[in-house]
Design a protein around this nucleic acid. Structure first.
Lengths: 250, 250
DNA sequence: GACCGATAATTGTCTGACAATTGAAAACGA
DNA sequence: TCGTTTTCAATTGTCAGACAATTATCGGTC
């Protein structure tokens, strides 16, 4: 079988698109094996390095995985939530950093989405979720915790909160939104006072979810959003001053 | 400069990760030019084809673009919202299709996220947004509109609704959620009665946003979500019967 | 029957080369 | 001197053939 390609175009890109579409259409089932590189090269009438470049494109999108050895080859990946999440986070992080999205916008988006999960989380939270929430709150109160670890625990708290909604698609979306904000959140240096306040808000939030009180949870979330914005505004103000002193316009 | 790589590992993958991280860290600015393939090959102490495979991985993620000719090379892409959205939709579509996510879960996720936009949309909606909403509603009432076009208009309506929140990050997330559901929505055959009901609900929603009544908008959204779920349940029931007749258990 | 080595298939990588493209410098003419 | 054309050099895209690394499978041996 010879598959025709447009000449004067990027072969490897065309091949990658062809195979990708075949996967999306379901012509190649998950865990199915693609023809060997040599066979593909013969089919598309190109050299093996060109086929390999196409396969690497697909591998970068987590669409296939490759395995060496006899009975090796390229296999269609069953895209799991974990890999998809990694992808989402990468894209979201890049989007935020390369488009100079301001802290306020990213923050607003993140908390708006998270607030959407609260009613479901209140309705469905299981003991395991509540335990996870409490565990992270306890960790956040640890003496001598670095800012980085505090942020990580914060992320874990919010992910547990979202997971309580028991909707994997929702969790996927939110995980992307929350994790993509990590670089922005890491700029904040958490003083003892701000930590205490955040922990209190987390506690209120956890209590509301435990009590299945969506209204109270939403209120607590609003307060947390407002306080996060306030902290963000502080660092921005602190950054604006040295910049004006240190650099000359031009 | 020689950059060390782990041996007994996939070189092209390591190189891709290294460059990707450099881009994410901002060491390589947007529209900045990477060293030539030969230079990169020398730096990483590998051959040019290996470097090329790494670059193709990055190109597949829209992180770089390549250009031939003198003063050509690989350039860091400024990842715009459009490209990022395309990426998000691809990933989300694949996620839904490959993990057999049921209609209820996807639907719940989508409407929960969309509901989160309503307060902001009510607060900030501009005349242009309202006009877009009304235009789509008018289109949905067109005689002889195909199911596909009706779906497309539905997507456009909801995107306009989200855009009214005037938060690009939020719009990005929602566009992914809404568009990824298209394949599932396209299964529904919209009868005249169901169309009329949906249009009424859209009208209620648009009116509430126009009146900046977030409470009413949320109620309308709930009704729309419930009705969409009902329609989805109908097609599932309709599908279950022929399946039982046509296939033998095996 | 269990264990072990040869074998074949397949991906990963290297070397060297040529084609295609494109910007820039050099040559040329007015 | 200015503008046009030609040439050139840098860079990516592709090819061909080869070898190394890995791994399942098939035989052989104990």
């Amino acid at each position: 079988m010879r598959t025709e390609l447009d000449s004067d175009r990027d072969y490897s890109q065309q091949i990658a698109r062809t195979i990708r579409d075949a996967i999306l259409d379901g012509q190649l089932p998950a865990d199915g094996r693609l023809p060997s590189e040599s066979d593909l090269a013969a089919q598309f009438n190109v050299s093996r390095p060109t086929v390999r470049e196409a396969l690497k494109r697909l591998a970068a999108q987590n669409l296939i995985r490759t395995q060496r050895g006899a009975s090796g080859g390229a296999f269609v990946n069953r895209l799991g939530f974990d890999e998809a999440q990694e992808h989402l986070v990468t894209t979201a992080t890049l989007l935020l950093s390369m488009n100079r999205v301001d802290f306020e916008t990213a923050c607003e988006s993140r908390f708006a989405l998270e607030r959407a999960c609260l009613p479901l989380a209140c309705a469905r939270r299981a003991p395991a979720h509540l335990a996870a929430l409490r565990a992270e709150i306890a960790r956040q109160g640890t003496e001598g915790l670095s800012d980085e670890d505090f942020c990580a625990s914060d992320v874990a708290f919010h992910r547990a909160l979202v997971d309580a909604a028991a909707n994997p698609v929702l969790s996927w979306h939110l995980a992307g939104a929350v994790e993509a904000m990590q670089p922005l959140m890491n700029m904040i240096t958490f003083t003892a006072r701000s930590r205490a306040r955040i922990i209190t808000l987390h506690q209120t939030l956890a209590d509301a979810v435990a009590a299945q009180d969506a209204q109270a949870a939403s209120t607590a979330m609003d307060a947390l959003a407002a306080y996060t914005l306030e902290l963000g505004g502080q660092i921005r103000a602190r950054r604006a001053r040295p910049a004006r002193e240190g650099t000359s316009a031009g």
